[in-house]
């Protein structure tokens, strides 16, 4: 379904030399829905997000944002088109303050016009950042840095926001707080593509989910259905063995 500004990719293949990371992956995210991709280490989750963001080349397949093809576009053009990424490790400007990070987020043409509104929106979603706006980013805690990273990505006025394992390194409490924030971000009308190993908490906030294993999508359904599915429960919600797969 090609929504006005929805993200869709079809049969994407990514290989690093001889090693195939994605073997033909098709995924869709519409504005206003929160989609999660579950997979263990090595399943290909980061490769998918990096290929969509233009950070790694894809060998085959097409990627579209609305009607605009994303394949072969350089990363800064993809951000201009409306697709923002919060990478693993957050990707914030550690030596700059919170406010400088957020303002830099609005660097693109697309985002400049809405800078003030988006800044107000980000501060209303993450009130903790208001009092810390002049604090240097790398001196903040992991959870706070994550907020800065999401805020920074939202400042680029994206239609779709992608996050690569944002719960990594966060306590369960901070993770639920983070995921609640993501729900509020979705409610502002953005589409969210969330890549996670943390199945339980991410399925609890998602609308739909995909299962990625060894570079292939092996299942996709409404989030509630996935939560209730015994096979999913066994693979992702129960055994520690699932974390070592791939």
């Amino acid at each position: 379904m090609s929504d006005d500004q929805g993200l869709s990719c079809r049969d994407v293949v990514v290989a690093y030399g001889q090693h195939p990371a994605l073997r033909g992956v098709s995924v869709q995210v519409a504005p206003g829905e929160l989609v999660v991709i579950l997979g263990a280490n090595g399943a290909g989750k980061s490769s998918l997000l990096n290929a969509l963001a233009g950070l790694v080349p894809s060998q085959q397949g097409e990627m579209l944002l609305g009607q605009q093809p994303l394949t072969d576009l350089p990363p800064h053009r993809i951000v201009e088109a409306g697709l923002a990424l919060v990478p693993e490790g957050r990707g914030i400007f550690g030596d700059l303050s919170v406010e400088e990070n957020l303002r830099l987020g609005a660097y693109s043409e697309r985002a400049r016009k809405q800078e003030q509104q988006n800044l107000a929106l980000v501060y209303s979603l993450f009130p903790k950042l208001v009092e810390r706006r002049r604090q240097i980013a790398r001196t903040m805690s992991g959870g706070e840095q994550q907020m800065v990273a999401i805020g920074r990505a939202m400042m680029s006025a994206p239609a779709i926001l992608m996050l690569d394992e944002p719960s990594l390194g966060l306590s369960p409490l901070l993770t639920s707080e983070l995921f609640r924030s993501l729900r509020r971000v979705r409610d502002t009308g953005l589409g969210i593509l969330l890549v996670e190993q943390n199945a339980r908490q991410s399925l609890a906030i998602a609308d739909r989910g995909y299962l990625l294993e060894n570079g292939e999508i092996i299942g996709s359904d409404q989030a509630a259905a996935l939560l209730a599915d015994p096979a999913v429960q066994h693979a992702y919600l129960g055994g520690a063995a699932a974390k070592r797969a791939g």
Partner: peptide, 16 residues
Amino acid sequence: AVAVDPRAAGLVAIDV
């Protein structure tokens, strides 16, 4: 921005 962190600069649509 590029001097501080080229990767983050790429994420905010700067043509590094």
